[in-house]
Measured scan of single mutants.
Amino acid sequence: RPLSCPNHEGKTMEFYCEACETAMCGECRAGEHREHGTVLLRDV
Score class of each variant (00 low, 15 high):
residue 17 C to V: 00
residue 7 N to S: 12
residue 26 G to A: 13
residue 43 D to K: 06
residue 20 C to W: 00
residue 32 E to C: 10
residue 29 R to V: 12
residue 30 A to K: 04
residue 36 H to D: 02
residue 43 D to Y: 00
residue 35 E to R: 04
residue 28 C to K: 04
residue 5 C to D: 00
residue 35 E to W: 03
residue 37 G to R: 14
residue 29 R to G: 09
residue 1 R to S: 06
residue 20 C to F: 00
residue 23 A to S: 09
residue 18 E to G: 05
residue 10 G to R: 08
residue 6 P to H: 14
residue 35 E to N: 13
residue 24 M to K: 03
residue 3 L to A: 15
residue 36 H to I: 00
residue 38 T to F: 12
residue 33 H to K: 04
residue 37 G to H: 05
residue 29 R to I: 10
residue 3 L to W: 00
residue 9 E to W: 06
residue 17 C to L: 00
residue 42 R to K: 14
residue 44 V to N: 02
residue 14 E to G: 05
residue 17 C to I: 00
residue 41 L to T: 06
residue 9 E to L: 10
residue 7 N to W: 06
residue 13 M to V: 08
residue 42 R to I: 04
residue 10 G to C: 04
residue 21 E to C: 07
residue 23 A to L: 05
residue 42 R to G: 11
residue 22 T to E: 06
residue 36 H to L: 02
residue 41 L to R: 13
residue 22 T to C: 09
residue 26 G to C: 05
residue 37 G to K: 08
residue 35 E to D: 14
residue 44 V to L: 05
residue 23 A to M: 08
residue 8 H to S: 06
residue 1 R to T: 14
residue 19 A to E: 09
residue 35 E to M: 05
residue 5 C to A: 00
residue 38 T to R: 05
residue 37 G to P: 09
residue 26 G to P: 13
residue 25 C to H: 02
residue 16 Y to G: 01
residue 37 G to C: 13
residue 2 P to G: 15
residue 8 H to M: 06
residue 13 M to T: 12
residue 23 A to F: 10
residue 38 T to I: 14
residue 19 A to C: 08
residue 37 G to V: 12
residue 15 F to A: 02
residue 40 L to Y: 13
residue 18 E to A: 06
residue 2 P to C: 04
residue 39 V to G: 12
residue 9 E to P: 09
residue 4 S to W: 02
residue 14 E to M: 06
residue 40 L to Q: 15
residue 40 L to K: 10
residue 21 E to W: 00
residue 10 G to Y: 06
residue 37 G to I: 13
residue 1 R to N: 15
residue 14 E to S: 07
residue 41 L to E: 10
residue 44 V to D: 13
residue 43 D to F: 04
residue 39 V to E: 13
residue 9 E to G: 09
residue 39 V to K: 14
residue 36 H to Q: 01
residue 20 C to E: 02
residue 19 A to F: 04
residue 24 M to S: 04
residue 3 L to R: 08
residue 20 C to T: 04
residue 29 R to D: 10
residue 3 L to H: 12
residue 31 G to I: 10
residue 12 T to L: 09
residue 30 A to I: 06
residue 10 G to K: 10
residue 40 L to D: 05
residue 7 N to D: 09
residue 35 E to S: 09
residue 10 G to T: 04
residue 1 R to G: 05
residue 1 R to L: 00
residue 30 A to E: 13
residue 25 C to P: 03
residue 44 V to R: 11
residue 3 L to C: 00
residue 17 C to E: 02
residue 16 Y to W: 09
residue 33 H to G: 03
residue 35 E to Y: 02
residue 30 A to D: 11
residue 22 T to I: 14
residue 36 H to N: 01
residue 15 F to H: 13
residue 5 C to W: 00
residue 24 M to C: 15
residue 15 F to S: 05
residue 21 E to Q: 07
residue 24 M to G: 05
residue 16 Y to L: 04
residue 17 C to W: 00
residue 22 T to M: 09
residue 19 A to I: 01
residue 32 E to I: 02
residue 18 E to K: 12
residue 1 R to D: 11
residue 17 C to F: 01
residue 1 R to P: 00
residue 30 A to S: 10
residue 23 A to W: 06
residue 42 R to P: 10
residue 38 T to W: 14
residue 21 E to L: 06
residue 24 M to E: 07
residue 9 E to V: 08
residue 7 N to E: 11
residue 6 P to L: 06
residue 28 C to S: 01
residue 22 T to K: 06
residue 3 L to M: 15
residue 33 H to P: 08
residue 15 F to Q: 02
residue 28 C to Q: 03
residue 34 R to E: 13
residue 27 E to V: 07
residue 7 N to A: 13
residue 39 V to C: 13
residue 34 R to Q: 15
residue 23 A to P: 14
residue 5 C to K: 00
residue 34 R to H: 14
residue 21 E to V: 05
residue 26 G to K: 09
residue 12 T to A: 07
residue 11 K to F: 11
residue 12 T to G: 09
residue 32 E to F: 07
residue 21 E to F: 03
residue 5 C to H: 00
residue 3 L to N: 06
residue 20 C to R: 01
residue 31 G to E: 09
residue 3 L to T: 14
residue 42 R to Q: 14
residue 36 H to M: 01
residue 16 Y to V: 01
residue 26 G to R: 08
residue 21 E to N: 08
residue 4 S to Y: 15
residue 24 M to P: 04
residue 17 C to R: 01
residue 4 S to G: 06
residue 39 V to A: 12
residue 12 T to W: 08
residue 43 D to P: 12
residue 4 S to P: 10
residue 9 E to K: 08
residue 28 C to R: 04
residue 15 F to N: 08
residue 11 K to D: 08
residue 29 R to Y: 07
residue 37 G to L: 06
residue 33 H to L: 01
residue 17 C to P: 02
residue 39 V to L: 08
residue 1 R to K: 00
residue 7 N to H: 02
residue 30 A to F: 15
residue 15 F to T: 03
residue 10 G to A: 08
residue 26 G to L: 02
residue 34 R to T: 14
residue 4 S to V: 01
residue 12 T to R: 07
residue 12 T to N: 12
residue 2 P to M: 15
residue 23 A to K: 12
residue 2 P to L: 15
residue 38 T to K: 09
residue 29 R to E: 12
residue 25 C to Y: 04
residue 33 H to V: 02
residue 15 F to V: 02
residue 25 C to N: 01
residue 13 M to Y: 05
residue 8 H to L: 03
residue 26 G to W: 14
residue 44 V to F: 12
residue 31 G to S: 08
residue 22 T to D: 07
residue 40 L to M: 09
residue 21 E to M: 03
residue 16 Y to R: 05
residue 15 F to G: 03
residue 4 S to A: 10
residue 6 P to N: 04
residue 19 A to K: 11
residue 41 L to D: 06
residue 43 D to T: 07
residue 9 E to S: 14
residue 2 P to V: 15
residue 27 E to Y: 03
residue 7 N to C: 03
residue 9 E to R: 12
residue 34 R to W: 07
residue 13 M to C: 09
residue 22 T to H: 10
residue 43 D to R: 04
residue 16 Y to S: 03
residue 1 R to Q: 10
residue 34 R to F: 08
residue 6 P to V: 10
residue 38 T to Q: 15
residue 32 E to S: 14
residue 32 E to A: 13
residue 25 C to V: 01
residue 31 G to C: 10
residue 41 L to K: 09
residue 8 H to C: 09
residue 42 R to F: 01
residue 38 T to Y: 03
residue 14 E to A: 05
residue 26 G to F: 10
residue 2 P to W: 05
residue 14 E to N: 01
residue 17 C to S: 01
residue 8 H to N: 02
residue 30 A to M: 13
residue 31 G to Q: 14
residue 26 G to Y: 10
residue 20 C to P: 01
residue 20 C to D: 13
residue 29 R to L: 10
residue 32 E to K: 09
residue 34 R to I: 15
residue 21 E to D: 14
